[in-house]
Amino acid sequence: MTAHRRIDASKIGDVTVVRFVDKKILDEASIQELGVELFGLVEQLNRRSILLNFANVEFLSSAALGKLITLDRKVKAAKGRLKMSNIRPEILEVFQITKLNKVFDIRKDEAEAIAAFQ
């Protein structure tokens, strides 16, 4: 298993569940690292069903949104599926403002998201 510093990845069935280590995803260097680790799930570890659980995340900047968009594109290109869950209202608002809620598959909680992979 690849060592991760910015994410904590575990498997529930076929789904790779990703939790974020940082409460605030805004530091440019951390966001770079986060991108490398997320993309590695698809490109190195060949994960095709990925759930990002945002329960721990209190804040994210537009640079972090950029990484999520790129991840979404990579997963779609690999014919995989990406879902997101447990997003707090302030961050959901950010997704709505930028209309990324139309691009991302956003579910209320982890259980609902896992069920949606079946």
Partner: peptide, 21 residues
């Protein structure tokens, strides 16, 4: 405008819109 259909998946260009929101 980052919310245009054809720009939705461009990974940058959202900062000013978020500031304004």
């Amino acid at each position: 405008d980052c919310t245009l259909e054809e720009r939705l998946e461009v990974p940058s260009g959202r900062g000013v819109m978020l500031m304004r929101s």
